Deep mutational scan, measured.
Amino acid sequence: EPLWIRPDAPSRCTWQLGRPASESPHHHTAPAKSPKILPDILKKIGDTPMVRINKIGKKFGLKCELLAKCEFFNAGGSVKDRISLRMIEDAERDGTLKPGDTIIEPTSGNTGIGLALAAAVRGYRCIIVMPEKMSSEKVDVLRALGAEIVRTPTNARFDSPESHVGVAWRLKNEIPNSHILDQYRNASNPLAHYDTTADEILQQCDGKLDMLVASVGTGGTITGIARKLKEKCPGCRIIGVDPEGSILAEPEELNQTEQTTYEVEGIGYDFIPTVLDRTVVDKWFKSNDEEAFTFARMLIAQEGLLCGGSAGSTVAVAVKAAQELQEGQRCVVILPDSVRNYMTKFLSDRWMLQKGFLKEEDLTEKKPWWWHLRVQELGLSAPLTVLPTITCGHTIEILREKGFDQAPVVDEAGVILGMVTLGNMLSSLLAGKVQPSDQVGKVIYKQFKQIRLTDTLGRLSHILEMDHFALVVHEQIQYHSTGKSSQRQMVFGVVTAIDLLNFVAAQERDQK
């Protein structure tokens, strides 16, 4: 057995438009009618409502009807409940999964919650491996369901041993009777949507819809739904939504950006999952974080739909894509998950301010006199920076000697690579993860907040409520011999709460 199987392995699926269902090699399930009293909570997966979006479509000038398939009504709160249950049931049916076995899954959280929910009911041990950027709410729900959680670096490539995929496979090879159901490759993922989600949409719309818009992560949702719609409703256009920084969209030119990270969760990847059939997507749109969270908040405030950030991405694209539809036509959007997962993220004004998705003037509360002053007023001194090749031991000596707790790590040209902190280095040394002679590049981390000289002290204040420091950066445009230009970030300084307090105190003292 291989040590790991690539999540982007070539698909062996034989589905073709027009091929009889009787030739399918898979076990198919028909939607079942729910009894009045459910035998367990797993029976509350599927049969989610279709809700008309009344205000947002009109606000953006849509002539067509805009409908939302509300997947956050599933038992675990997301569309991923469907595939989690289906993968477990299919693994039980073919004898792969037996009582007492362990389920391991690399996930952005929602599939993990679905699997942990099913594992709690069915009696399996469950280990979820997820990147650090995923919300604390997801972690809390997983723990409450009895799952064990392993976190991995957000910026690790999918084929790196440190990625959530790599760590999951390492655990599988170490733990007896453990299984990775593997949402990236498992046919049960798109089949769950082909058999149930798509049929529900067709039934709820009486077979009449002209466009379907869905955000894409593993691709199982859009693949399964689109294949069924292509068979039953061939005139329906399928629109895929991919965040900026991901590479799922086609044509490839759409993916060209210097951005590699994004805040919206559960969609987009740096590889093409095996289950994603991009041939059934008629057109791709890219979405960005700001519009995703703005539209998610709009869905909550104006439509009462308590959905997550990827739902915002989907609707932001839908109001663009559906401009081509006329009166009497219908566009369906998939709202994948609930706001429950993001209470401390985009639902929080403070978080939105820190990330730059909300401006101070958007909030009406009274601010102190210094709130709208610029960061450049602080008069920061030149920063202490270190090269990635310097040793951890030497870096600790320098920081202690100069009285700093942290320093930016830059390359020879001064471009920011990340940050090192005294606390992080000492804990890594004590844990045996690094040696004093190791290069400081081994303990770089990139989960820090950046701020510009033109940003306000109010925004800085919000950042420092949650973080010990902020890195002050400025952009530099560099022209190359080819005539092309590129933008790079340079370090201007490091600012802490002490710097802000000293500035405010000094100004008030001078005024007296």
Rank of each mutant, 00 (worst) to 15 (best):
I238H: 01
V241F: 03
V241N: 00
P243H: 03
G245V: 02
S246Y: 00
I247Y: 08
L248S: 00
A249N: 04
E250R: 06
E252T: 15
E252V: 12
E253M: 03
E253A: 11
Q256S: 14
T257E: 03
Q259S: 03
T260Y: 12
T260M: 12
T261K: 12
T261P: 15
V264N: 00
E265G: 01
E265C: 00
I267Q: 02
I267S: 02
G268L: 00
D270I: 02
F271W: 03
I272G: 05
P273Q: 00
L276I: 07
V280D: 07
V281K: 02
V281I: 04
V281W: 02
K286S: 00
S287D: 03
N288S: 10
D289A: 01
E290K: 13
E291L: 11
A292H: 03
A292G: 08
T294S: 14
F295I: 09
R297M: 01
R297D: 02
M298P: 09
L299H: 03
L299E: 03
A301Q: 07
G304T: 00
G304H: 00
G304L: 00
G304P: 00
G308N: 00
G309Y: 00
S310K: 03
S310I: 00
S310Y: 00
G312N: 00
S313F: 03
V315N: 07
A316F: 12
V317N: 09
A318L: 02
V319C: 13
A321R: 09
E324V: 15
L325Q: 05
Q326F: 09
E327S: 09
I334V: 12
V339S: 06
N341M: 02
Y342Q: 01
M343H: 03
M343R: 07
M343C: 03
T344W: 03
T344I: 02
S348F: 06
S348Y: 04
S348E: 13
W351T: 00
W351G: 02
M352G: 00
M352S: 02
Q354T: 11
F357T: 02
F357A: 02
L358G: 05
L358A: 07
D362L: 11
D362N: 06
T364L: 09
E365Y: 10
W370L: 15
W370P: 01
W371I: 09
H372Q: 13
L373F: 14
R374L: 12
V375C: 10
Q376K: 10
Q376P: 09
G379D: 14
G379Y: 12
G379V: 15
G379K: 12
S381N: 08
S381P: 15
S381K: 12
S381G: 13
V386Y: 12
L387D: 11
L387K: 13
L387R: 14
P388I: 03
T389P: 15
I390F: 02
T391H: 15
C392Y: 15
C392A: 15
C392N: 06
G393A: 15
I398K: 12
I398W: 07
R400F: 09
E401Y: 13
E401W: 06
K402N: 14
K402I: 11
Q406P: 03
Q406N: 09
A407S: 14
V410P: 03
V410N: 14
V410A: 13
E412Y: 11
A413V: 15
I416G: 10
L417Y: 12
L417M: 14
L417R: 12
G418P: 03
V420C: 11
L422E: 12
N424P: 10
N424L: 13
N424Q: 13
N424S: 02
L426W: 07
L429Q: 10
L430N: 14
A431W: 09
G432M: 05
G432E: 11
D438G: 15
Q439P: 09
Q439K: 11
Q439M: 07
V440A: 09
K442R: 15
I444M: 13
Y445F: 12
F448H: 10
Q450M: 13
I451W: 05
L453C: 12
T454Q: 11
T454F: 11
D455N: 08
G458K: 09
G458Y: 08
R459F: 13
E465Q: 14
A470R: 09
L471V: 15
V472C: 09
E475D: 13
Q476V: 09
Q476A: 10
Q476H: 14
I477G: 04
Q478R: 15
Q478L: 13
S481L: 10
T482D: 07
Q487G: 15
R488V: 13
Q489S: 13
Q489V: 15
F492P: 14
V495R: 08
A497V: 15
A497W: 11
A497K: 12
I498D: 15
D499R: 04
L500D: 00
L501I: 11
V504R: 10
Q507A: 13
E508H: 11
R509K: 14
Q511K: 13
K512W: 04
